[in-house]
């Protein structure tokens, strides 16, 4: 990837977020059920990585292990070459179902992470205003979630995740509750934010089950298989941005990933 413009993935750099031989079992009744087996994965700074796989393949569990919300049964999560313990405060999460509090307005929903962290009110005001503006929500500050379309709700989710100024943004099927046209717009906007030099987020890990979405957005697609979850193949996407679905290489990648999943 030499010659890439600044901010794009440089896979020759050592990964700054790594899963090393991660296993995870859950108890299914009294019987341990192995959900993830010997999964290793490296993510470089500045990279946009998609995790793709069939539903039920543990993609979301993997995202939560990356964030430190779920502890691996064995194996390690390393962040900047240090063993990650507990929840990593350098990560923001965007949820499939938006996860907004219906009784809080847009401003209050966005500020949640900063309030929980105990930032001073002046700092909270400044940051919330900045990120609300960045995601295009200025004008909606006093709106409640019930007044918002799905697209606007997910912009609130994005602003809330970005507001804590994380280095890494984790997105768990962020567009799957949106209609097709809104999805096209939001994908573009997420890519704009990723390339925005004023954003702290340089690295994005997204879970999706839409192959096209993974190829359109990411530098690398990690294909997962289920029971237990493991990496089938990692596929770099070297197509120029903005990406064109009509590119024959797009089709080839899409077919390749599809054949690995099915």
């Amino acid at each position: 990837m030499s010659g890439s413009p600044p901010g794009t993935a440089t896979m020759d750099k050592p990964p700054f977020l790594r899963l090393e031989h991660v296993d995870r079992s859950f108890l299914d009744g009294a019987r341990p059920n192995q959900a993830i087996r010997d999964l290793s994965l490296g993510i470089s700074e500045g990279e946009f990585v998609s995790l793709v796989g069939p539903s039920g393949c543990g993609k979301s569990t993997l995202l939560r292990i990356l964030q430190g919300l779920i502890v691996p049964t064995s194996g390690e999560v390393l962040y900047r070459d240090t063993l990650q313990q507990g929840v990593n405060p350098d990560m923001g999460m965007v949820f499939q179902g938006f996860a907004l509090y219906p009784w809080l307005n847009v401003y209050q929903n966005v500020s949640l992470g900063l309030v929980a962290r105990g930032d001073p009110p002046g700092v909270i005001d400044r940051k919330v205003a900045f990120y609300i503006d960045k995601v295009g929500l200025e004008g909606y500050e006093e709106a409640y979630p019930r007044e918002l379309s799905g697209g606007m709700k997910q912009r609130v989710g994005l602003a809330r995740a970005l507001c804590i100024e994380p280095a890494i943004l984790l997105m768990d099927e962020p567009f799957s509750n949106l209609d097709a046209l809104t999805t096209l717009t939001l994908r573009d906007e997420v890519l704009m934010l990723w390339k925005d030099p004023e954003m702290s987020v340089r690295t994005i890990v997204m879970v999706t089950h839409i192959i096209e979405e993974a190829i359109l957005m990411s530098d690398r697609v990690v294909v997962l298989a289920r029971r237990p979850t493991h990496v089938v193949e990692e596929i770099p996407v070297n197509l120029p941005r903005p990406r064109d679905r009509r590119d024959p290489e797009f089709d080839r990648l899409s077919d390749r990933i599809f054949s690995l999943i099915s």
Binding site: E147, G151, L181, D188, R245
Partner: peptide, 24 residues
């Protein structure tokens, strides 16, 4: 306003429509 916000065409959908047209 308690109405369904999807009753009118939202800006994100209009932008999506433009994107589809441009791509085709």
């Amino acid at each position: 306003m308690e109405g369904d916000p999807e009753q009118y065409p939202g800006i994100s959908r209009i932008m999506g429509l433009l994107k589809v047209l441009e791509e085709t």
